[in-house]
Design a binder for these strands. Sequence first.
DNA 1: CTGAAAGCGCTTACAG
DNA 2: CTGAAAGCGCTTACAG
Lengths: 337, 337
Amino acid sequence: MGHTKEHEKKLTITDVAKALGVSKTTVSRAISGKGRIGSETKERVLEYIQEHNYKPNVLAKGLAQLKTFNIGILLPEDYTVVDLPFFQTCLIGVQETAVSMDYDVLLTMGKENDCTQLARMVENHKVDGVILMRTFTKDPHIEYLKSQGIPFLTVGSTYYQGVVQVDNDHQSACRELISILLLKGMKRIGLIGGIESHVVTQSRLQGYVDACKMAGVPIDKSIIHVNVEKDMMIELGVEKLLENGVDCIVCLDDAVCIHVLNKLRKESISVPKEMKVASFYDSSILENNLPSITSLYFDARELGNVACKTLLEIIEGNQVKMRTLLGYEVILKESTK
Amino acid sequence: MGHTKEHEKKLTITDVAKALGVSKTTVSRAISGKGRIGSETKERVLEYIQEHNYKPNVLAKGLAQLKTFNIGILLPEDYTVVDLPFFQTCLIGVQETAVSMDYDVLLTMGKENDCTQLARMVENHKVDGVILMRTFTKDPHIEYLKSQGIPFLTVGSTYYQGVVQVDNDHQSACRELISILLLKGMKRIGLIGGIESHVVTQSRLQGYVDACKMAGVPIDKSIIHVNVEKDMMIELGVEKLLENGVDCIVCLDDAVCIHVLNKLRKESISVPKEMKVASFYDSSILENNLPSITSLYFDARELGNVACKTLLEIIEGNQVKMRTLLGYEVILKESTK
DNA sequence: CTGAAAGCGCTTACAG
DNA sequence: CTGAAAGCGCTTACAG
């Protein structure tokens, strides 16, 4: 058995107009607030629709205005990444401001080089604009959206010209974190995690370099390990870092950090006594770790809020800043004491 | 600056009809496959729209058929839960089958007792049906959707009458896990985690009880700790379990399990030598734990697939099973050796 | 097999 | 201040 109860048949603008003895035009104006209308008439209409719980059909409204009142959001599909709370939280942020502006969020997944889902959504006229939740140095999604001329922006930075972007200031964040660690007396700070083709990784590496330069510390590529996706590679990376005599390991995300911590535990290396550790994102995954882990904090929810608000501005034809950089916090905990 | 490039103006059915010297009716029929149409004409139309990359406007189609080709999905909003990979994976499952049937997924968040977002989406006519990703013993969302008569189903079981539901067989799963542990010689198996008002927790508790009964083991409520959401409460729960002399701790989800493992580590209790541990969900959070953790595995992606397929059946007016139960696997690892 | 026409529920010049 | 009418891009009886 499927569902049995019938949809109550929904009121339309015509019903309302008839009931009130006015024209559909008038009802429409009362609701939208556009166009001249007598305040008394307006009152009557609003009261009536209130009472009878009339809700305009957004589809029809959209058709008349050639809009959908939906925004699309492209979430990474690869498993390692989907687990990161960052995306969920950012998504919540997008969603909550979308709803507050009476838009809805349409979800799409996509791998680095697969535009099919995104293209389908755009070509089916299902969205007024798109938010890309992640950027690559070479990014087919960006290229596609540019070619379509549909409003969009990226969460995360990109080198593409003319693309609106909203991001945390990862470069400064990483620079500050590393500077602090250097000040605290660490000499050789190893880096592990991140994927080279992600712009965010580039920004962080730059921040690392900046901090080293400022402190007059030479850069040693043998203690920087990116593209260590699989667990085995992380373990290997840690081994190399140990061989190369680092006194601190900075992890580019919390998932990597968990593995690093496991590995150190396996090797019976105690944190922070024998090795300092810090991570990006102050996520719940690491929340209760012993020792607590020094990390950078980015407000993913606010990032989502800002991204969504900016996209809606673009959709409505307003000018927006090409690049919005949001802040960060360095949270010092036991793991670097 | 916002975006500059204009939308290329899109082809409409009228353009196609004109270009081919046929009526809109004919074009529509060629595309939908409904109604009689000469196979040659059909060819011509399909070829043309192929070549000129014409895509029908789903909005207009929807308006004419009073459909949206969207389904809504209600995700839990509370932070602790959003982190669980289960929901993401299930969401991916829903999304991928939705897309394969040319539907899109509209995202909504909601807390246990807050229907506003869901109601907004439904009343705005934005979806043809809804999937609830979690169920409560007393569930306002279910009550709301029933009252609206809109097609919906729940992922997870519910006691409400006449509600279509898709779920893994948590009761059997838990029964089997516990039975196996008892067979392996454990005497006092503690339970920790889960929220009492979730139906899934009830099912698992029932499975636990079943297994104990079958084995003739008495039930001791002092070693069952539900509603331990905050970290502190988990620690306390573990302490109580220790006091009460359990030889095995079964965690109702992996997030709780992480905290339990941390606590045991803090207390220098070694797993599995001094304490056995098992968990629900074989998620990546615990993937690399040492020792590896015995757990139940549910195929969340398939669950999403099935849920979505079932909802679409309902939407299209077909009969469906009221309750679909999917399987599980017990994965034995080091933590219970 | 094909088409003219009405309709889905809105918006918006245009006229009054 | 208000309304009749055309239009958004489709679908679908109905007629031929």
